[in-house]
């Protein structure tokens, strides 16, 4: 599984982001934090970043998220130093720290590759953070599946909306069937997204009470829709 390293000027911030991110993956995803100087004052130290990466390094790789300025420079230097020892599956992400770290763990928890985690995290800056914020909607292209697909709809019951944990369950369930599946939030008029991608699911900004449409085509289309609908109606096991 891909590991995540959080680098900040502040040790408290780095540890705090680590804590938040760990909460989303039940400790499944290896996460390490590097921040602050030896004496506790704010700053970054490339050797600390080297140690943090080393402490969780695995062949699948490590994604590094940094806050700003010297945190990025220290992370880049750490990446260089480790590459010289052959520890080279290390990527730096340009994503914002908090959104990025949360997106990284949900993606990594699905067993995605470093490349996939990196790509998912880059999308994190588009997450609709405020409920009323509208996701930019490109040309409302008709769904590729529309002609042959079966469709189901459900009202989201989860009080906290389709946040990361239910989104992960949704994505995992969708991935289990031989079918092309798409989902959209009708209430918010979102575009169709790929429900196997947690980040895409989070982008449709689904809150409690929103009407969600799911379409599927392919050999197991009907089973997939049935399973997803049941999952949603069970409140994703949250109640």
């Amino acid at each position: 599984m891909v590991g995540i390293v959080v680098v900040s000027h502040s040790r408290k911030l780095a540890e705090g982001v680590k804590e938040l991110a760990e909460g989303m993956s039940n400790g499944q995803v290896p996460i390490a934090a590097a921040g602050g100087m030896e004496d506790g004052s704010p700053g970054t130290d490339a050797y600390q970043v080297v140690e943090a990466i080393r402490s969780i390094y695995r062949p699948e790789g490590v994604l590094v998220l940094a806050d700003l300025g010297s945190a990025v420079l220290s992370a880049r230097l750490a990446q260089e130093m480790l590459a010289a020892e052959g520890i080279d599956a290390v990527r730096l992400s340009p994503a914002p720290l908090v959104e990025g770290a949360l997106a990284a763990v949900v993606e990594a928890a699905q067993g995605s590759t470093l490349e996939q985690v990196d790509a998912a995290v880059r999308e994190a800056k588009y997450l609709a953070k405020l409920g009323e914020e509208q996701i930019e909607i490109e040309e409302e292209a008709p769904s590729a599946l529309q002609m042959v697909a079966v469709e189901t709809r459900f009202v989201l019951r989860n009080r906290l909306g389709l946040h990361a944990r239910p989104a992960v369950l949704f994505a995992q369930t969708a991935a289990r069937y031989q079918a092309s599946i798409e989902a959209r939030n009708l209430t918010r008029n979102s575009p169709w997204v790929n429900p196997r991608s947690v980040i895409d699911l989070l982008r449709i900004g689904a809150s409690v009470g929103d009407l969600i449409a799911v379409q599927a085509s392919g050999a197991e289309a009907a089973q997939a829709l049935e399973a997803l609908k049941q999952l949603a109606e069970s409140g994703f096991g949250e109640e």
Binding site: E38, S41, G69, R76
Partner: peptide
């Protein structure tokens, strides 16, 4: 690298 703390450290 280990003690400056700011951008000047890694640079």
């Amino acid at each position: 690298i280990g003690s400056v703390g700011g951008a000047a450290g890694p640079l």
